[in-house]
């Protein structure tokens, strides 16, 4: 990656941060209001995303991966959520200091989202074309005619056949895969620097999944944007991600480059996830599963949060506060006390 630092001109605002980091998150803590009071659902998550790369965030449901991204984008319900972070920087925007109104200026042109449920994420009462066009009207001040024309172009770009006719139709006239293409068109409309894709293929058929992933990859290549890909499917991770952040019970437990992580996992949870993944080279091998369930919010175990389910858990793992993240190799961190003694099995 060539760093174009410090040059004057239109791109200066983006380059003058001195690095090619688009999103920097340091010690993000999110509390949500539950029936029994405030509970911490994201606990000290840190990561950054570089220009043009795809960061995968992996974890079981309830691990806090969606909340992490919704909080960054300011999309958690304000009165039931508290978001704190040491750093939350998106290009030159300090997201911790933005008012809700300023935040809404950022959503769309700088960061945009694709959600899991293409069936319910589009408004049933408006045409698909209008739902794309309104983003352009809002952020780029495009006229009705101009925004409509560009909506058709975007539909064409994301591979919706006969886009001019389809733009005048309503979401219920689209299949799941086509709706997800529309969602991608909406996310793409203002050429954002970061796209957060929150399990974008989970609700789709396998063949459609592959098409949508291919489309996302293609668009990323074309526009050089950063993508945060939230998923629980390691197959998808292996397919699209450059680096991976593994989350468990609201914390990041391991992060590494894709190959490092798959070949040399340093946290027992990641080993468990890999063992639960079907292997192409040895399909007859029985799939392992991780025993037990993730802890509930507000009832986190002492010590390492994974220890009740960990086959390697020792006495040291069960008490005190959660172990700290340790750097075990270049760009590879883990939250396991015993990482040095253990030899964990990968799934290259």
């Amino acid at each position: 990656m060539t760093a174009t630092t410090g040059s004057a001109g239109g791109a200066a605002t983006r380059a003058d941060t001195g690095t090619d980091t688009t999103l920097e998150v340091d010690n993000l803590v999110v509390d949500v209001l539950t029936e029994s009071g405030w509970a911490t659902v994201v606990d000290g998550v840190s990561f950054d995303v570089r220009r043009g790369e795809t960061l995968g965030i992996v974890g079981e449901s309830g691990s806090g991966k969606s909340v992490t991204c919704l909080s960054i984008a300011g999309l958690m319900p304000p009165r039931q959520t508290r978001v704190r972070a040491d750093t939350l920087r998106l290009l030159d925007h300090d997201l911790t200091r933005l008012t809700p109104k300023q935040m809404s200026d950022v959503r769309g042109p700088t960061i945009s989202m694709i959600f899991q449920e293409p069936m319910s994420s589009l408004n049933p009462a408006f045409t698909v074309g209008d739902q794309i066009a309104e983003v352009l009207r809002r952020h780029e001040g495009a006229s009705r005619r101009e925004s409509r024309r560009r909506a058709v172009e975007l539909l064409d770009r994301v591979g919706v056949p006969s886009p001019a006719r389809r733009a005048t139709q309503y979401p219920f006239e689209f299949s799941g895969g086509m709706r997800q293409r529309v969602m991608i068109a909406i996310a793409l409309a203002c050429n954002p620097d970061v796209i957060v894709a929150d399990e974008p293929t989970t609700a789709l058929d396998v063949t459609v999944q592959a098409q949508i992933l291919e489309l996302l990859r293609e668009i990323q290549r074309e526009h050089g944007m950063s993508v945060i890909f939230i998923t629980h499917d390691l197959g998808v991770v292996a397919d699209v991600c450059d680096r991976v952040l593994v989350m468990y019970a609201g914390q990041s437990v391991e992060s590494a480059g894709l190959d490092d992580l798959f070949e040399d996992p340093r946290h027992p949870y990641m080993e468990g996830l890999l063992a639960a993944m079907p292997r192409m080279d040895n399909p007859s091998e029985a799939l392992a599963s991780i025993p037990g369930h993730p802890p509930r919010v507000g009832a986190m175990p002492d010590g390492c949060r994974f220890h009740p389910r960990c086959r390697y858990a020792a006495d040291a793992c069960t008490g005190g506060s959660a172990p700290a993240l340790e750097l075990v190799a270049a760009h590879h961190t883990t939250r396991c006390l015993r990482h040095a003694e253990l030899t964990l099995r990968g799934n290259p």
């Binding site: 809404s104 959600f115 319910s120 983003v135 909406i186």
Partner: peptide, 23 residues
């Protein structure tokens, strides 16, 4: 979910309520 989508697009609160919610 589509209200969250409307917010994710960066639409102003007035537009989210007046258009996407009210209809």
């Amino acid at each position: 979910d589509y209200v969250r989508t409307a917010r994710a697009k960066g639409l102003r609160g007035r537009m989210v309520i007046g258009k996407h919610v009210m209809k």
